[in-house]
Nucleic acid binder design. Sequence first.
DNA 1: TCGCACATGTAACGTGTTACATGATTCA
DNA 2: TGAATCATGTAACACGTTACATGTGCGA
Lengths: 188, 188
Amino acid sequence: MERMKDARRPTPLDYALLGLLHQHPMSGYDLRRILETTALGNYSSSPGSIYPALRRLERLGLVEGRVDRAESLRPRKMFRPTPRGQSEMRRWLSQEIAPDDVARDMDGLMLRFAYLGLLDRPTATLRFLEQMEEGVQEYLGELKNQLATFPPRASIQSRLALAAGIEGYRAYLRWARKAKTHFKEARR
Amino acid sequence: MERMKDARRPTPLDYALLGLLHQHPMSGYDLRRILETTALGNYSSSPGSIYPALRRLERLGLVEGRVDRAESLRPRKMFRPTPRGQSEMRRWLSQEIAPDDVARDMDGLMLRFAYLGLLDRPTATLRFLEQMEEGVQEYLGELKNQLATFPPRASIQSRLALAAGIEGYRAYLRWARKAKTHFKEARR
DNA sequence: TCGCACATGTAACGTGTTACATGATTCA
DNA sequence: TGAATCATGTAACACGTTACATGTGCGA
């Protein structure tokens, strides 16, 4: 139980990469391609962020990189999560949804949800969806209140922008409810 | 027409602040309170980001700060946009929507939309909404394609996460269409 | 042979985060 | 008297962005 020195928390990008590596080992280049071509690309991308991120994860002991095709002229480094990386991932996934997360970090929540299959425990997903539903409902109330008490001199555009936010969260709410049933069905 | 030295572009936070200052002059503290309590808070917040941002805007010549209540024991600095700040705002608002914006910077687009009332030109708003509609439609196609060609071994959760993204953009699409009519009506 | 995809990195830079610091006013 | 609010800042830090750098393998 030694205290770790330099125990910085991983960044969102770190978790995005760590999650991908849980599916199967990959090189930095493979990871880059995935980030570039999929919706995960918000936590992007480009060598300047991902190679440093991988070294960070190595330093934290969460992934391990082994040089593949070492004899070849074009070797590549394959990364896989360490046991420590796996348990850190589980810890991150099992967290409660913080009150602020829905308002300020919905993307982070969706990233966590996307990887929630790694915890092989259906209840965890359902609990997540329920907490999310609750959080979204609460925040929706706040937003609606903001719309009701909107400064009268404000432009139509700013009012409409707030309305867009509300619609977005409404969509999340519907999605969460539907996902619950979808997920219940799918787990037989 | 001298070339400016150190002509860095303003950051999203800068534009958020500059836009607020267009409504009426305010102090840094006032701005902070708004960011803390409204949905604008994503471009947040806390003295450590906003006071430096204001000095940045001053350095760029986009806002001007004047000390108010100087004789008082609790003076405050009121900021207002300069002519240069106003024209920079118009430039920023008048930009075309870049192909990538919809996928990677929807928040930035909505921020721009919120301030679009500052251009006193209804056509600009309509043009924006049309470009946005088009961009969202295109990106929706991409996302649906990603869902269709989803790796078969992937978890239900990751599939559902992608579905959530799709629902979100669908909501934006509906909103954009509705906003067009709303806006047409509202401008008489 | 030309260019593109593969493959991995480094360096400068600016920005936001977090934590700290200071002091006045107002109200309980 | 003490706490909350008003009001403005600074300093360390780490991260992502951008641009640069290097070299192989492969197909046209």
